[in-house]
């Protein structure tokens, strides 16, 4: 029998950290055991080996670069694409949400493009943009853009009509209604979109780097596949997972700062 009251030396926050650590350690332990003592070892390098290789990759280059440089290159590609996706997504989303005309013209096209996976565009992007970074930007852009647009559109559609009425009665013109009411009240939705999009964009980087490339975390995996180096594949996967986790947390921290007014209200 565990007496819960005696556990008060740990706060809830500390407990959450402890459980997270236990969960991760268990995953690694199971992975290690499966890789060492079952037939899966042929295709799955043990956790310890991957972790050692992962740590070494920060000092010993894989291909031409060390891990941080690879991550940097991939982040740069995602960053550029994400930047343009944000601008285009917010503009399109707010436009479609606010103007019926824009909605009628653009929504069918958007809905047609939306379900096409970014990877399906790879062959065309090579034709259109060649093998350089532009094609990679394009693929990652497609990976983020739709999420931002859909969420922004939702936000602009869901503006409280009371607030628009209140603004109009205070003398607001169309432009003021748009910039003072529609846009700010969409911000929480936009952020929800950005959060999904940054993760989606980061996932799309692997696909983008399958196109002729010699650096980046996606390349690391493709390269590992071509040379049958499972450890390198796993190292790339671990790197993508960790960076994705950090990115998701950074965006939600940013959201909490910028959307403090929306707290406890949910969406």
């Amino acid at each position: 029998m565990i007496d819960n009251t005696k556990d008060s030396r740990f706060s809830v926050k500390q407990l959450i950290v402890i459980y997270t650590i236990i969960s991760l350690m268990s995953l690694l332990a199971v992975w290690e055991l499966v890789a060492r003592f079952t037939k899966a070892s042929m295709f799955l390098p043990p956790a310890s080996q991957v972790l050692v290789a992962f740590c070494r990759s920060f000092v010993e280059p894989i291909g031409k670069r060390t891990m941080l440089a690879h991550i940097g290159v991939s982040l740069y590609r995602v960053g550029v694409a994400f930047f343009f996706a944000t601008i285009a997504g917010i503009a399109l989303g707010v436009g479609m949400g606010y103007s019926r005309l824009a909605e009628a013209i653009l929504k069918p096209i958007f809905e047609f493009i939306r379900p096409i996976p970014p990877l399906a565009w790879i062959p065309l992007s090579i034709l259109w943009f060649g093998l350089g970074d532009t094609g990679k930007f394009f693929i990652i852009f497609l990976g983020c853009f739709c999420f931002i647009t859909v969420n922004t559109y939702d936000g602009a559609k869901n503006v409280d009509p009371e607030l628009i009425g209140a603004a109009r009665m205070l003398g607001a013109n169309e432009r003021q209604v748009f910039f003072e009411i529609v846009l700010p009240s969409s911000v929480p939705y936009i952020f929800a979109g950005l959060q999904i999009a940054v993760t989606a964009g980061w996932s799309a980087v692997v696909g983008a780097e399958m196109i002729q490339s010699n650096e980046g975390v996606g390349w690391m995996i493709v390269r590992g596949m071509n040379t049958g180096n499972t450890v390198q594949i796993m190292v790339g996967i671990v790197a993508i997972g960790i960076v994705g986790f950090i990115l998701a947390n950074l965006t939600s921290a940013l959201e909490r700062r910028l959307c403090a007014w929306n707290e406890q209200k949910g969406m």
Binding site: L163, G165, L170, G171, C259
Partner: peptide, 22 residues
């Protein structure tokens, strides 16, 4: 009846909203 305050503005920004618009 409805408290049509803008949730993303602070109290002082809300009070100043009409002046800002005008």
């Amino acid at each position: 009846q409805e408290y049509s305050t803008m949730p993303w503005l602070t109290v002082e920004e809300n009070v100043g909203f009409g002046l800002d618009i005008k």
